[in-house]
């Protein structure tokens, strides 16, 4: 039963329809969580003892960075599935993930710069954490550029999947960079072995924003996936049916 349901996702028209339904559900939940998180983070949470109000950028910056990294792992995994099983849906999702992932990486870098200027005293510093996240952005952009450079869709998907897998090594580097090198960026507040080093009133909105951003990303992935799937299947009968002809 379950297996059959999953198997059906592999069919392009089924994917197109189900993704449309799931996208709406995911985005509704994401909107509720993000609104609650914004209220909690901007209104209810107190100021920080050291940074004052500026620390509220954390509610955007940290979820954006998590999504940027998570999206890359998903892209590499679906890329591998596409390489091994030659599944069209996996190839489309891989390419859809590059777009959402790149936009969240830009968000993490931009909010980091905006936060760094008043607290550290600089917009940018060539520190291991910041540099490895910049590399992540280049990996996403390289993926999109490579895909556009190769005419044949299937060849493009294979080349891009290999690039995604090679770049996977960067993800643990990003996470551990603050331990391995002397960085200006501080260590993890939440994603560490001991309990989070953040007061509960500040932690709850952060987790709401993080979960909301994750769900928004998942919905965006499906939304991009539908568009790219339709483009790839433009000569098929189901596409014509969807177009209403």
């Amino acid at each position: 039963m379950m297996l059959r349901y999953l198997h059906e996702w592999g069919s392009p028209p089924v994917f197109y329809q189900r993704a449309g339904r799931w996208q709406r559900v995911l985005w509704t939940l994401a909107a509720l969580l993000i609104l609650a998180g914004l209220w909690g983070g901007l209104v209810l949470a107190p100021a920080d003892y050291e940074q004052g109000q500026v620390y509220r950028i954390i509610y955007i910056h940290v979820p954006a960075a998590w999504v940027a990294m998570f999206a890359y792992v998903v892209m590499a995994v679906t890329g591998a599935i596409g390489l091994i099983w030659r599944l069209k849906v996996a190839e489309v999702i891989t390419s859809a993930g590059a777009r959402t992932g790149a936009s969240f990486t830009i968000l993490a870098l931009a909010t980091g710069a905006i936060w760094g200027q008043p607290t550290w005293g600089t917009w940018w510093v060539w520190d291991a954490r910041l540099t490895s996240v910049l590399v992540l952005l280049f990996l996403y952009l390289g993926f999109i550029a490579l895909e556009n450079a190769i005419e044949d869709r299937r060849n493009a998907a294979r080349a891009c999947a290999i690039l995604a897998l090679v770049g996977l090594v960067n993800i643990p580097i990003i996470h551990f960079s603050v331990y391995w090198w002397n960085t200006l960026h501080q260590g993890p507040t939440v994603a560490r072995l001991s309990a989070p080093a953040i007061h509960i009133t500040m932690l709850v909105p952060l987790l709401l924003m993080a979960l909301g951003s994750m769900l928004f990303y998942a919905g965006a992935l499906l939304s991009w996936g539908r568009a790219l799937m339709l483009e790839r299947e433009r000569s098929s009968r189901w596409a014509a049916r969807e177009a209403g002809v």
């Binding site: 991009w224 568009a227 790219l228 339709l230 969807e242 177009a243 209403g244 002809v245």
Partner: peptide, 11 residues
Amino acid sequence: LRRRQALRLVA
């Protein structure tokens, strides 16, 4: 927008 464009192309 990209999906709408694809739908027009298909039609």
